[in-house]
């Protein structure tokens, strides 16, 4: 393997979990669609790797590519996909012995899915624990505006998860 491939493998191994989490959140827990998006994200990372100048830190750079890949993924929700998604949500909800954590995650996916694309990206980055300044750099809106928006989405999300 060449040096680009070695760097790429390191990036892949270190960032796969967080990219996968973000894509799962973006697709309301649809694993197969999320995996497609993860693959697409890493393909874009490869294609842009030579142009990376370390101006924003590799983490921010990867999040930008991942968020943009998810934003660009506009497809009509296929009926089959929608049914699969709903089925898997119902199975988790009605299980006799549900892991509370998993249940909450499913509920969280559902609630995140109700948000607009940009708000989804913002709250997923917040859930990842990124500083709000970094989120504003990734999304491209002012820090103050991000702060206000996060506050509003947090309220909406908490309310939704608690079925209020």
């Amino acid at each position: 393997m060449g040096s680009k491939e070695i760097t790429y493998q390191k990036i892949y191994e270190e960032n796969y979990p967080k990219v996968m989490r973000l894509c799962m959140g973006y697709t309301a827990g649809n694993e197969s669609l999320a995996k497609d998006l993860v693959q697409e994200t890493f393909i874009k990372i490869w294609q842009n790797l030579d142009a990376f100048r370390n101006e924003s830190g590799i983490g921010t750079w990867i999040y930008r590519i991942c968020v943009n890949t998810c934003l660009a993924e506009i497809r009509r929700e296929r009926k089959k996909d929608r049914e699969l998604q709903i089925d898997s949500l119902q199975v988790s909800d009605s299980s006799d012995n549900p892991a509370e954590k998993e249940d909450m995650l499913v509920q969280l996916y559902k609630c995140i899915n109700k948000l607009s694309s940009t708000n989804k990206a913002i709250i997923l980055l917040e859930l990842e624990g990124l500083p709000q300044l970094e989120i504003s750099e990734i999304i491209g809106i002012k820090h103050e505006a991000v702060r206000t928006r996060i506050h509003r989405i947090k309220q909406q999300l908490t309310k939704c998860v608690n079925n209020e």
């Binding site: 796969y16 954590k101 995650l105 969280l108 917040e126 908490t158």
Partner: peptide, 17 residues
């Protein structure tokens, strides 16, 4: 659950490596 609980659960979900 408050948001911090949600965030905690989110960050501690079973890792896909």
């Amino acid at each position: 659950n408050n948001f911090e609980d949600l965030q905690n659960k989110w960050q501690n979900q079973s890792e896909v490596s």
